[in-house]
Amino acid sequence: MTMEKDIIHRLLLFALGDGLYGAQVSYIREIVPDQPKNPLPGAPDFIPGIINIRSDVVKIIDIRRIIPLGREQPKKKIIIFVPEDAHSTRFGMLVDEVYGIMEVPDQVVSHLDRSDAKIQNNFMLGFMKVSLDTFLHQIGRSYAAGDDDLVWIDFEDLIRTIVSGDQDGSIVFRLTALFNPQYLLSGEWKKNAGKIKV
């Protein structure tokens, strides 16, 4: 019987704006460099276009077109999600940097209470403290303790919500709560609530 303390989470670490995030690798197909996108007529503003990856059409999501974020890196990456099935639309998300996979022991994660509807709304599973610098300068994928805040994103919920295509402004609220919580206080996020139709 596996003890809970022995559980290891394999998280892909990436940066978007001023934040450091992690996502379960099982929901990620691959990472590719940012590249020119073909505009998609009728697409919402947060989808700047599509790219082709080995004959697959991938719609690109740019969170910065929904909410303001911190500094933007010149060499961005695209995280391609695993599609639900062979007939599902492929999606990718534009991020500032991808740092690699960290194997995080469960005991260092502060899990959020997913039964609380208010917490559940922001695509966040939990958070932890890491040292990104130590992680980047070591060999392997071991957890590196430190003072950097790492937010663990529920990519399954994020992908399902975006792909469903029938959401309203609530997804803008949820993305804002995740990537730029201070922006919620301004109320400006409400202006973008009607731009999210997929």
Rank of each mutant, 00 (worst) to 15 (best):
185 L>S: 12
41 P>W: 09
63 I>F: 15
170 S>E: 09
94 L>N: 11
164 S>I: 05
90 R>D: 11
83 P>A: 07
104 V>H: 02
155 F>T: 14
194 G>C: 03
62 D>F: 02
19 G>N: 08
81 F>C: 14
118 K>H: 07
171 I>K: 01
114 R>G: 05
109 V>K: 14
78 I>H: 09
23 A>M: 13
55 S>D: 11
17 G>P: 00
66 I>N: 06
7 I>Q: 14
73 Q>H: 05
88 S>T: 06
38 N>I: 15
95 V>F: 05
42 G>D: 09
95 V>A: 07
109 V>W: 11
85 D>T: 00
115 S>K: 14
103 E>F: 05
180 N>D: 00
29 R>P: 01
15 A>F: 03
75 K>M: 10
65 R>H: 02
194 G>D: 10
159 I>R: 15
100 G>V: 10
190 K>E: 15
27 Y>R: 01
106 D>S: 10
119 I>L: 15
110 S>Y: 10
59 K>E: 11
22 G>D: 11
28 I>N: 04
59 K>G: 08
184 L>T: 05
110 S>Q: 12
32 V>Q: 04
94 L>A: 09
4 E>K: 10
169 G>L: 04
149 D>G: 10
24 Q>K: 02
52 N>T: 13
88 S>W: 04
135 F>D: 02
97 E>I: 06
160 R>Y: 06
188 E>W: 01
60 I>E: 02
149 D>S: 12
175 L>A: 02
75 K>Y: 11
189 W>E: 03
83 P>F: 10
115 S>E: 13
192 N>K: 12
120 Q>C: 00
12 L>S: 07
63 I>G: 10
117 A>W: 02
55 S>V: 07
22 G>W: 06
169 G>C: 06
91 F>R: 00
50 I>Q: 12
143 Y>F: 15
129 K>W: 15
104 V>T: 09
195 K>C: 07
196 I>A: 11
129 K>G: 15
180 N>G: 01
176 T>K: 04
10 R>P: 07
51 I>A: 13
103 E>R: 12
103 E>Q: 13
79 I>S: 09
114 R>M: 06
30 E>T: 13
29 R>S: 09
159 I>H: 15
40 L>F: 11
97 E>H: 08
16 L>R: 00
13 L>D: 10
141 R>D: 12
116 D>Q: 05
11 L>D: 08
35 Q>Y: 02
181 P>D: 01
176 T>M: 03
127 F>T: 00
38 N>M: 14
45 D>T: 10
128 M>P: 00
146 G>K: 02
83 P>E: 02
48 P>V: 04
112 L>T: 01
177 A>I: 02
84 E>M: 07
166 D>W: 14
189 W>I: 07
162 I>T: 13
68 P>Y: 00
115 S>L: 14
127 F>A: 08
9 H>M: 07
112 L>M: 08
79 I>L: 12
